[in-house]
């Protein structure tokens, strides 16, 4: 058994406010993610789950605690490209074709251009977009754009794949298909994934483990192993174990929302 890929120890994030107490976004987060594990984070809106991903990715500094990646502190390895980030909006560069968008993270890193292009093509194929290499983002549907987004993150061969509600903006049908696609891609790549979502069913369907956050300031409230075999299909959503877990997680989130003063206050 390999050691953890990612360890968060007492991680805090606060934003100073002029003339007041700092705004605490999350606090005392302890989380360990194993190699090849798919972990989802769910929680009420505003609990800091997206911020947590951004802090892990080094887009924002944390305010205390430790982030360890393969046992090394994140500050030490911050310049290395160890993480692939799948943004909520596809955030594709409109002046680049699919292929060029996927190349963004891999080109110009000292490998020869032919290899990197081959690599980008391979990842477009992996996400089911062979033949769309030369399309511009505006020529692609929302689902296809998210596939490019995913291919771009995977192409850098990241140690950890961070996904920030990647399917939230898609219509329900496309979202279902994308979830199935992600299950397939994960099976083929066995990447370590941290997946933030507000959809409980999505978290259970995809994950090995579901982490539930409290309301803000967010911290880990509970963790659940998903007791469902893989490979999974949509049928699994009617499995009693799935429904039980969904129910338990929902109850907890409901409690958190109420503790925060009710849904209207969020």
């Amino acid at each position: 058994m390999a050691g953890p890929v990612l360890e968060l120890r007492n991680l805090n994030k606060e934003i100073p406010r002029p003339g007041g107490d700092p705004f605490i976004i999350f606090k005392n987060i302890n989380l360990t993610v194993r190699d090849g594990e798919f972990v989802s984070i769910v929680g009420p809106s505003g609990c800091g789950k997206t911020t947590l991903l951004r802090v892990i990715n080094g887009l924002m500094p944390h305010s205390g605690g430790q982030i360890l990646i393969d046992g090394k502190s994140a500050e030490e390895v911050n310049q290395e490209l160890l993480m692939g980030f799948v943004f909520q909006g596809a955030s594709l560069l409109p002046w680049r074709t699919s292929l060029k968008n996927v190349l963004l993270g891999v080109e110009g890193r000292g490998q020869n251009a032919k290899d990197t292009e081959q690599r980008a093509r391979k990842h477009l194929e992996l996400v089911g977009l062979s033949g769309f290499e030369n399309y511009y983002p505006h020529q692609l549907s929302g689902g296809m754009q998210q596939r490019v987004n995913l291919a771009r993150a995977l192409a850098v061969n990241p140690r950890i794949l961070l996904m920030d509600e990647p399917f939230a903006a898609l219509d329900a049908q496309t979202r279902n298909f994308m979830q199935l696609e992600l299950l397939r891609i994960w099976r083929e790549t066995r990447k370590t994934v941290i997946f933030v979502t507000h959809m409980i069913a999505e978290a259970i369907l995809l994950s090995d483990r579901v982490v539930v956050f409290t309301h803000r300031p967010g911290t880990v409230r509970s963790e659940f192993q998903v007791p469902l075999p893989r490979p999974r299909t949509m049928d699994i959503k009617s499995d009693p174990r799935f429904l039980d877990l969904e129910n338990v997680v929902w109850k907890q989130i409901e409690e958190e929302v109420n503790a925060a003063g009710g849904f209207a206050k969020l």
């Binding site: 990715n57 310049q79 560069l93 850098v156």
Partner: peptide
């Protein structure tokens, strides 16, 4: 978002300029 994207992919400032800022300004 594009600037964050560049940081997320650890582009250096030269790449940030030529791959993001310049084409976005055209």
């Amino acid at each position: 978002e594009y600037v964050e994207l560049a940081r997320s992919f650890r582009l250096n400032s030269r790449a940030l300029f030529f791959k993001i800022l310049l084409p976005a300004s055209v």
